[in-house]
Nucleic acid binder design. Structure first.
Length: 241
DNA sequence: AATGATTAGGGCAGGTTTTA
DNA sequence: TAAAACCTGCCCTAATCATT
């Protein structure tokens, strides 16, 4: 494509639309009127021969083409900004950036106090926005790719198959544990997997259907657990023990 | 009905062409 | 080379249309 034929401000419009998923909000973000943003979108559509964004509840949703373009647009604009800013390294002490972290309430409960202290100490202008993972063991690749989340923290068994734009790092290792109240009959002996499956219990499950990774593992052993409560909240499950 | 996207028409800034 | 005239494209407001 001939870049001379492209108004590079359209990339800013694209970025704002990817972030806001709403033409009016994207316009406000760039200090434009809503029709001006609509017009920019129309020019992008003509340029790329794709609708890019289609109407959806609450605004617009990106087409697969727009989603594929998103990482490149973000990276390109980031390079422009860095070039124009004189290639400044990230400086926590002067940054006013908002970091969006997708994680479980369990990880949030464990990490948030430490994170908050570190931010207060080293990056007083930085804000942290925690958001819940949509699924417990599934890497939110789309959210990361679209910039809806900067990082995701959790146990992601299939993360190794993530695309190249996703950077993976082991930050901690944990074991699954069974929690029960003091004095529970099962606490007096070594818990077998059969005991576990047979005992009425609560579990953390994010999906609408109460069927997760552990159920798959049990099924492989010919077992089915006696699940009485499925909740997306670790703290709720702990509270019911 | 409310919210949000698109269209129409006019103004303005910046670029191009013409002319002295 | 610089100034004037002209052209093009973007943005604005207002009105209308579409979707939820």
């Amino acid at each position: 494509m001939n870049l001379q034929a492209v108004d590079l401000n359209l990339l800013l419009a694209m970025e704002a639309l990817l972030e806001e998923r709403n033409v009016s909000r994207a316009a406000r973000r760039l200090g434009l009127s809503q029709p001006a943003m609509s017009n920019a979108l129309a020019r992008l559509r003509g340029l790329l021969n794709d609708p890019l964004f289609v109407r959806a509840p609450g605004g617009v949703a990106p087409t697969p083409r727009a989603e594929r373009m998103a990482p490149g647009v973000r990276a390109g604009l980031e390079q422009f900004r860095r070039a124009l800013d004189g290639v400044r390294e990230f400086d926590p002490s002067s940054s006013s950036r908002t970091f969006r972290i997708a994680l479980s309430d369990h990880a949030e409960w464990l990490l948030a106090p430490h994170l908050l202290r570190a931010v207060e100490r080293e990056a007083p202008g930085v804000r942290v926005q925690c958001k819940r993972l949509d699924a417990l063991f599934v890497l939110p690749e789309a959210e990361l790719r679209m910039g809806a989340a900067d990082i995701a923290i959790g146990f992601f068994p299939d993360a190794r198959t993530a695309d190249e734009s996703t950077r993976l790092e082991t930050v901690a290792e944990e074991e699954h544990v069974v929690v029960m109240r003091r004095g529970h009959p099962l606490s007096r002996r070594t818990l077998t997997i059969e005991d576990y499956a047979a005992a009425p219990h609560a579990a953390v499950i994010y999906r609408p259907e109460p069927w997760g990774l552990i159920d798959q593992e049990l099924a492989a052993r010919g077992l089915r657990r006696n699940l009485r409560l499925a909740s997306p909240h670790f703290l709720t499950v702990l509270h019911t023990a």
